[in-house]
């Protein structure tokens, strides 16, 4: 069942640019330019793109805080802007760079307030809070005012705050930004567990591709307000021809003219003692290693998986 659908979604902004000493011209900029999207219930979707690609703008239109210039949007069967307050009861939003907690109040009181604002029955609230407390280890700072929390602690509080009313869709806008490795892992682990239940649909925008690799099977890449890829990470690799790389250290220089089917010699370094070969899709590293070993004695080798960063960087540049 489709829980989020967008067709031809567009958002134009009018900006004034200097044109001469006093004159200013109005120019229309499309932040989002015809995005089509369909997300199924329970899906975990990664939504990525370079800075200014239109990710946050799309998210704001999906959550109803920004009116689209054109196009159709439905989230949980509602029209986001027109039915914003009703939609708010059914979605949760975490902005990595914003806070929805009360700065001066202890975390516990912020959660209590949200229960009233979202009209959550107290048994449901207690059960959800108990689960978050256990999974996100909140107990140590539940009574600390939000202003005194570290970023990692606050983000765990934000995640809890977004989930206490049992949302059907959770929108996460850069939830791991600025977090240390341990906190990032805690947040990812929690989201993975949440996604595994299948009760919540996750839409995640991030610049940290490790978040995506860990959490999302489906990846939507936007650039200049347009969707440039919509599919799995593997499909992305396939489409952009990313290849595994085999690095071998040899005891003797590699004979000139060495060639093996299914692999390309990318570089020969250290007077022929180190070679880098990129492997075609479907070719086993074993065959290439055997051929190499036949040509020169092997000392050491490693195989590098294609990095999603490289693919995405190529995508952004293209």
């Amino acid at each position: 069942m489709t829980i989020i659908s967008a067709a031809g979604l567009r958002k134009d902004f009018t900006v004034r640019v200097k044109a001469g000493r006093l004159r200013r011209e109005r120019r229309t900029v499309s932040a989002v330019d015809g995005v089509d999207l369909a997300v199924e219930r329970g899906e975990m979707l990664g939504y990525i793109g370079p800075n200014g690609a239109g990710k946050s703008t799309t998210l704001k239109m999906l959550t109803g805080v920004l009116a689209p210039t054109a196009g159709e949007v439905r989230v949980c069967g509602l029209t986001p802007v027109a039915q914003r307050t009703r939609l708010a009861l059914r979605i949760g939003v975490v902005f990595g760079q914003r806070s929805q907690l009360w700065w001066d109040l202890p975390l516990r009181e912020s959660f209590g307030l949200l229960r009233h604002i979202y009209r959550v029955p107290s048994a449901d609230h207690a059960a959800r809070l108990r689960r978050c407390r256990a999974l996100l280890e909140l107990d140590a700072f539940l009574d600390t005012p939000v202003r005194q929390l570290s970023l990692g602690q606050r983000m765990r509080g934000e995640l809890t705050a977004a989930l206490l009313h049992g949302p059907e869709v959770l929108f996460l806008d850069e939830p791991t930004i600025g977090l240390d490795v341990v906190s990032k892992q805690a947040v990812r682990g929690f989201l993975a567990e949440l996604g595994a239940t299948g009760d919540v649909t996750l839409v995640l925008t991030t610049h940290d591709l490790a978040d995506i690799e860990r959490l999302c099977r489906r990846l939507v890449v936007v650039d200049h307000g347009r969707v440039v890829h919509d599919g799995t990470i593997e499909e992305l690799h396939g489409r952009y021809g990313s290849r595994r790389v085999l690095v071998a250290d040899l005891d003797a220089p590699l004979p000139a003219g060495f060639a093996v089917a299914g692999a390309t010699v990318e570089a020969v370094e250290a007077d022929g003692h180190r070679v880098q070969l990129s492997l075609d899709g479907g070719v086993g590293a074993g065959t290439v290693v055997a051929a190499l070993a036949g040509a020169a004695p092997l000392r050491d080798l490693s195989v590098r998986e294609p990095a999603i960063e490289d693919v995405v960087a190529r995508l952004y540049r293209s």
């Binding site: 704001k60 959550t63 109803g64 805080v65 914003r84 307050t85 009703r86 708010a88 009861l89 979605i91 939003v93 902005f95 914003r98 806070s99 929805q100 604002i117 979202y118 009209r119």
Partner: peptide, 17 residues
């Protein structure tokens, strides 16, 4: 700062809150 977004994402009109 843009933090007002979180006010708009609540099921309560900001003026009332």
């Amino acid at each position: 700062s843009g933090d007002v977004v979180t006010d708009l994402l609540r099921p309560l009109p900001p003026v009332v809150a």
